[in-house]
Nucleic acid binder design. Structure first.
Lengths: 279, 279
DNA sequence: GACAACGATTTAGGATCCCAAACTGGTTCG
DNA sequence: CGAACCAGTTTGGGATCCTAAATCGTTGTC
């Protein structure tokens, strides 16, 4: 049973690729990921601060990788290099998350449309069908278990990510996937992330509602799949938009319910894992 | 009269801001812009090459700013840091341009929808109305002149850019504009760019067709404006999509006509100007 | 007492140095 | 004759040093 403090976000991490990145990529990229993580988790306050020397001490590296990392983070928007001599931390807010999710969803809907228009789309359909099947199987397992099981949820996450990334990569427009990655630095913004309410595990009623959300999501997957299969761009795009909007609404609902919702709460779970640097 | 080699692209440059950037920003950012420009213009071939030391000599700087610039360019995707020890140049193709324009257009349509949904949108409407008026005036001038005048075209470009950037900034979702900027490193991808056929100035007939394109584009602006004013998100989005798609179709038409179309041709005009580094 | 100017310290940018890893060449052994 | 290994050179990554600029504090003068 998984019960977390406010909302917990589970992500698929593509373990192999991650390890490869973590060891292959030079320190600066990894360092950027670490600093980003700390900023998101609130280790640095919103306002103005952080100097290169300061970061050198904290992360025990020289100034060179720090500066390389800062350029990257500046480009990402999590820090700003302003007027004077200082770097200002620009930690993302819940509103930022919502906006980014909205943009990502919109891009995914473009991907769905493009894929539905594409001739070679049939090649990628089996992978999507398999993903839908796996999510269904996972939902079935959860339903019979009557509670959340981490490994089952992880499998569902993995399949969910496969479904979404397949569309992004099969849409024949590299910039869609690329652009999506650009705004997916925040952990819960990774393509194919699923967000759960902390209360999902609390009572049977809430658990059933969580299951319903999963079933609804996968039904949307099925519709998107069929629309792409049939070559119906309008329906594929519309359904994907609706599908993406589900997450926005869910967070908004939760935000209204709990006014103290912070970004750190949103990443409460995924923070304990290693982050996917970029890729 | 402006007559260029294949296609010429005119861009508004926000002169003041540009100058501020060029002098304010540190060398690495500017260096990244220079290298990017050279890559786009084909100074470096597509395949695998370039070393840090080599770039140091060419641009007469130390290795530190070169490496900072390379990280930026890597993030942008114009170079790739691969397997072995080398940086590979990944110069964009015409297909890349088309894909990027498609993505940008889709994001702009999102911005139009969001702005149409927004309550405070009225504040920004006058600026858009003025832009439409100015474009109309410029078209009128061009029509009465019977040919292309650089300053008039520039004014039209400026107004066009104002129209588009106003929507992007007024949509109340910072990530839309931010994401747009990310893919706007290529000069002809700057928001609000207008693309002209080199043949526009050749014959009166072609000139009239060019005028027709401008009039059509501004009519679309008017429709978008009214849709946003009335708060019709669906229409605003749809019209913006159509508007954005115009450029894609135009380049595609031209690509079919002239198979040797290269990216360097696309930037033939704007390359002579200073590039907008980022911002 | 207040304001301005000058100096000291902080800080970011650029350059150089060092090192580690990988590619290239040649040579040697099977 | 081919393959593998070893050495040398190339190249990228990290650290340190230097410099320029900006901010803050102090002091002097009005």
């Amino acid at each position: 049973m998984l019960v977390f403090n406010l909302i917990f976000v589970l992500r698929l991490d593509f373990g192999i690729q991650l390890i490869a990145n973590a060891s292959m990529e030079s320190i600066d990229t990894e360092l950027a990921a670490r600093i980003r993580k700390d900023i998101i988790l609130g280790a640095y306050k919103e306002g103005e601060r952080v100097s290169e020397a300061q970061l050198c001490e904290i992360y025990e590296v020289s100034r060179t990788p720090v500066r390389l990392a800062l350029r990257l983070l500046e480009r990402e928007g999590v820090i700003r290099r302003g007027e004077g001599r200082g770097y200002r931390v620009q930690s993302p807010t819940v509103e930022d998350i919502l906006q980014a999710v909205e943009v990502r969803g919109h891009l995914e809907s473009l991907a769905a449309r493009l894929m539905a228009q594409r001739r070679g789309r049939a090649d990628h359909l089996p992978k999507m069908a398999l993903a839908i099947e796996r999510i269904d199987a996972a939902i079935g397992e959860l339903a019979s278990l009557g509670g959340l099981d981490e490994s089952v949820v992880r499998r569902a996450q993995a399949a969910n990510k496969v479904f979404h990334t397949t569309i992004l990569s099969a849409c024949a427009n590299d910039y869609v996937g690329y652009t999506c990655e650009q705004i997916s630095h925040l952990p819960m913004l990774a393509v194919g992330s699923m967000v759960f309410d902390r209360t999902v595990g609390d009572t049977p009623d809430r658990f059933q509602r969580g299951l319903f959300r999963l079933r609804l999501g996968n039904a949307q997957h099925q519709v998107i799949f069929e629309a792409i299969e049939k070559g119906d761009p309008v329906r594929a795009e519309g359904m994907m938009r609706e599908h993406s909007h589900t997450m926005v609404e869910y967070i908004q609902t939760f935000e209204k319910r709990d006014e103290s919702l912070t970004v750190a709460d949103l990443v409460a779970y995924s923070a304990t894992e290693s982050f996917s640097p970029n890729s």
